[in-house]
Structure formats: C-alpha cells, structure tokens
Design a protein around this nucleic acid. Structure first.
Lengths: 139, 139
DNA sequence: CACGTGTACTATAGCACATAGTACAGCGGT
DNA sequence: ACCGCTGTACTATGTGCTATAGTACACGTG
C-alpha cells in the first residue's frame, strides 16, 4: 500500500493571538488569489488539513466552512472540496474594503508617520507579487 | 452648580463582533491622526468615556491603557490624560504595516476582483481626507 | 466492502471580553 | 483639611469564542 500525502500548498507558522482557523483561512485565500491554487484544483480534505497542520479536524472543518461561505471553495460531499471559480463579489463587500478597511490602514499608516508614496508603492509591490507580473489594471 | 459635560470628540455606534474597547481605541486613533484631537489636548477621562459611551469604567480604562501603550496618550495620575506628541515609530511597526497588513488588504482586494487603480485611488482619498488637504507626501 | 470524503453532534477546557463593584493615591482648588 | 475630579488596582461573575477530543453517519468511487 502506498500513501500519497500531498503537501498542502501553503505553510503556516501559527502566531499567537490570532485564531488558528483565521490564519489558515488567510493562507488558503492567499494561495488562491496568487494563482498557487486554481479553480478546479482539489483543496486538501478536512482530515488532511488536520494532519498536516496538526490542528483538530473540527478546526479544519471550520476553515473549510469559512472558505465555502466566502465562495472560495465548493463542496462535494463524499468526494472533496474544490477551489471555486471566482464569482462576482457583492458591491457591499467591495465598498467595505475600500471604505472601512482602507481607512483603518490609512489611520495606522498616519499614526506611524508613513508617507502616502511609501504606502502606495508597497501596495503596488504586493499587487504585482500576488497578481503576477501583469496586474489586472493597466496604466 | 453647572455641569460641563464636554462632548467627546468621536461618536460610536458599536458594531457586533468587534470588542468594544477596540472600536473605541480606533475612534480615538482616528480623531488624533485626523487632527480632531491634537497633542496637548485633554483626552476624556475614564469616567467620562464610561458615561458618554455607556461602557464600563474598566473597559474605558482598558482603552486608555492601549492608547498609552501605543504612545498616543500620556497619563498624569490625578490630573488626566493628554494626547501625546507623535513620536518616531518603530521600524518593525512600519514594516509590519507595509508588509503583512497591506498584503492582507491586497489579498482581499484581489479576491473581490478589485483593480489596483481603484484601490490606489481610494487609498489616496482616505489619505487626503484624514491628513488634510495637503498630504505629507508630495509628488 | 473498503477507503476515502464531508458533516453533525456532544462534551470539556481555556481565554478574552465586559460588566459590577470597592478602594486607594494624586492633584488642584477652596 | 476637604472636595471633586483624576488614574489605577483589585476581586468576582457571566458570556461567548476558540480549540480540542471524541463518536457516528452519509456520500462517492473503486
């Protein structure tokens, strides 16, 4: 009998103070938006996540539930979980990000004495790194 | 005898799911970086915060402790709490923001199908709104 | 049938949050 | 010295969340 223990496509060093399931959700999200995992790819099963990340299966299942509720994964009971095709996001979610979440980041940046140029440049760097060499937006 | 119940310089509608003290910390931070409260200004006392926001004095004190630990307030026992002069932030804090925090925002933006231009523009808008008409960084 | 998969459920422990109190020290004004 | 504000320390309680440890069942495929 041979085992096929596929390495999961993200690594995590859990940091204290943030729920474990949140960190895994984020790592999975990041793997998807960066193209490391693509629509149609199989997502690690609950038991596989549990084993590889050394977390409880219930916690692993919680991760999957979150990702499903965000439309990132879709479930096939008895078969597995797949990375879903991107779907059109809700306008409310988009405006929450460009509103509250961006404002919070700017408040923090101003508090730290950062400059807009520095933050804008870092934004662009992250964008290119995650979205590939050709960002979706073109000048 | 007349009361001088000074209105605190921020309003809050508490939203569920986020600790009350975190929301107040953020509102205070925002008031400071936007210039609504300036270095040397008196910050509302623990009892005043408690009364105005209808939160427990221990919770109000927790807010003050956080703001003090971030260098935003300084304490005068028996006198009150003042908005501190901005101090040079730690390089580790700055790189955490332009690193992890910005990356998380970009992951979220990509997931929602936002475009870099839209996010960059919203960044700039928030910056100008909070930092005044003349941002610290100049093109 | 076996082996993978997802899912539901109970139970327990620990931690964070928020509250409700009491009490004390410091400071400034009277 | 007293009063009224201030900050601060402490105990206690309740709630909710997180994470774990289990068990069990349904689904799909080979």
């Amino acid at each position: 009998m041979c085992y096929s223990t596929r390495v999961i496509p993200f690594r995590l060093d859990f940091e204290p103070g943030i729920p474990i399931y949140e960190q895994v959700v984020y790592a999975a999200k990041r793997a998807v938006v960066s193209g490391q995992m693509r629509p149609g790819d199989t997502f690690p099963s609950v038991r596989e996540l549990s084993r590889e990340l050394k977390i409880n299966p219930n916690t692993a299942h919680k991760v999957v539930l979150h990702l499903v509720s965000e439309g990132i994964l879709e479930v096939r009971p008895g078969i597995g979980t797949l990375v879903a095709a991107p779907r059109v996001s809700a306008a409310s979610e988009r405006s929450r990000l460009v509103g509250r979440e961006l404002e919070q980041l700017v408040v923090e940046a101003l508090r730290l004495g950062l400059r807009l140029d520095d933050v804008a440049e870092a934004l662009s760097d992250h964008w290119q790194k995650l979205n590939g060499a050709s960002p979706r937006s073109k000048p």
